[in-house]
């Protein structure tokens, strides 16, 4: 292959054009054949260096008008259980174990998206009621200052 993996992913990261043979223009830009581009992308997925080749979406215009980040302070022994049970809630899109910014290391972070405020509040209530949850903070975003991707490459942090 002529280009490095990094050059390849940077070019692919710009995203496909919406046309019948979208990999063709990418292939031309990279000086590769269409088939080589497809095979190389599949190989990067196989190696786990690319999670998947897919659409990135914005939730807001889809009708997810209400959203919140919930920080649940939990009992240390309940971390895994709360994480797993919280993940099963339908309105929860992301769920991580992180430290609280105040230094409390026993926190579960849940991103909650709902079509309306009621669903978000219900979900927050369900999180609060999970065994082992001591306290929840609900942080709503008041402004989205930025939502982009690095060199067009989407990541999940």
């Amino acid at each position: 292959m002529m280009v490095s993996d990094r050059e390849f992913i940077d070019a692919a990261g710009k995203g496909l054009e919406l046309k019948a043979r979208p990999f063709k223009s990418l292939a031309e830009a990279l000086g590769m054949s269409e088939q080589e581009v497809l095979e190389h992308m599949a190989a990067l997925i196989e190696q786990g260096r690319v999670r998947r080749f897919a659409a990135s979406v914005r939730h807001q215009p889809m009708g997810f008008s209400a959203n919140a980040m919930v920080i649940a302070r939990v009992e240390p022994e309940a971390i895994d259980r709360v994480g797993e049970q919280g993940s099963k809630l339908k309105a929860v899109s992301h769920c991580y174990h992180r430290s609280h910014p105040d230094g409390d290391p026993w926190c579960i972070y849940l991103m909650v998206h709902g079509q309306d405020e009621t669903l978000v509040e219900q979900t927050v209530g369900l999180i609060q009621d999970l065994p082992g949850v001591r306290e929840v903070s609900v942080c709503r975003s008041v402004a989205e200052l930025k939502k982009t991707s690095l060199s067009g490459v989407s990541t999940e942090i």
């Binding site: 992913i9 692919a12 990261g13 710009k14 995203g15 496909l16 919406l18 979208p22 992308m41 990067l44 260096r49 690319v50 999670r51 998947r52 080749f53 897919a54 659409a55 990135s56 979406v57 914005r58 215009p61 889809m62 991707s149 067009g152 490459v153 989407s154 990541t155 999940e156």
Partner: peptide
């Protein structure tokens, strides 16, 4: 709604 079709690394 759709922002991009591409690799999620």
């Amino acid at each position: 709604i759709v922002r991009r079709l591409g690799p999620i690394i």
